[in-house]
Amino acid sequence: MSLINPLNNTQALAGQTSVSSQNTGPSQQATSAAIQAATTQSAEETSTTGNPFIDGIRLPDESSIPEANNQELTQEDFFSLLSQQLSMQDPFKPVDNDQMIAQMASFSTVDGINNLNDEIKTLNSVMTSSQALQASGLVGQKVLIPSDTGHISAEDPSLKGIISTPETIESIAVRIEDEKGQLVKTFTIDGSAGGNIDVSWDGLDKNGEPVASGNYSIKATGRVDGTSEELPVSTYAHVTSVSLGTASTGAILNLRGVGGIKIGDVLAVSET
């Protein structure tokens, strides 16, 4: 009986393994690639079940959140949400036809309101342009504005305005002040007629000399019920040009030396 050396047997097996690993040829590599491809395909097939409802509720492998670019829902977004709602509904409790029609009608109403807003904006633009065109007829004329400040220049050497009185006043004291608030001239006018009293300043100071060009204020005081009170004064200004403005402001009248004023704030129009 012969004995087998375990050590020699182990070495022989190791040699066979080494030879087997070194003799790996192209055919064995192709076989490994085919097995790996089959495994990948099998994994992909197991990710879907073929049932749209079950596949629809599976968590996605990657985030599919779109980038935020617009916060407004369009008609395409609405139909996308409606289609998603129909695909996710319970087949035993489908969406009622009335509910679906109500949703579509609601979206149509919202879409109609948006279109109406666009039309209103266009209409406002047209009305603003038309108003500016009509206001252009005021260029070169004088308008009464609710301000006690007027402009004196070589073209307009005098200043006119209106003093509003709550009742008849025998005598109204008028003061003319420059832009710094310094007194330029004082005089009195008759206010016995009551109501709106015309006031006019010839543009001369207390010494009878023409004043320099600039803005001057008309201040008026009178005794009302036995008490001296400041009376509201409005002045006339020369319109040099008209600006379109916006839908909220309307046409803007540009006044010589005074600035701009909304056409809606004009109290009266006077001839030149």
Rank of each mutant, 00 (worst) to 15 (best):
P66Q: 02
S241R: 04
Q75V: 00
R256L: 09
D205H: 04
S213N: 12
T128Y: 06
N5S: 14
P157Q: 02
K206Q: 07
G250K: 08
T149Q: 08
G203A: 07
E229T: 05
G222A: 08
L116D: 03
S125A: 04
Q11K: 11
L7R: 10
P66L: 07
V95H: 10
N97V: 14
P26T: 02
G161K: 02
L144C: 04
G257E: 00
I261F: 01
A102L: 11
E45H: 09
I189D: 01
I218T: 04
L255Y: 06
A14S: 14
T188Y: 01
D225Y: 12
N5V: 06
N51Q: 13
D96L: 09
L255V: 05
E229V: 04
V110S: 08
R58L: 10
V19H: 09
A43L: 15
G208N: 06
A247L: 04
K93A: 13
L86F: 10
T74M: 06
A154C: 01
G161N: 03
V174C: 03
L82N: 07
A105D: 10
Q29Y: 14
E271I: 14
S87P: 05
E170T: 13
Q75I: 00
I163A: 00
A237H: 04
A154R: 10
Y236Q: 14
D77R: 05
R256T: 09
S192Q: 11
Q85A: 10
Q89F: 07
P52G: 08
N23F: 10
G245L: 00
N196E: 11
T128S: 12
D265C: 00
E72P: 02
I113K: 11
E271M: 14
P210R: 15
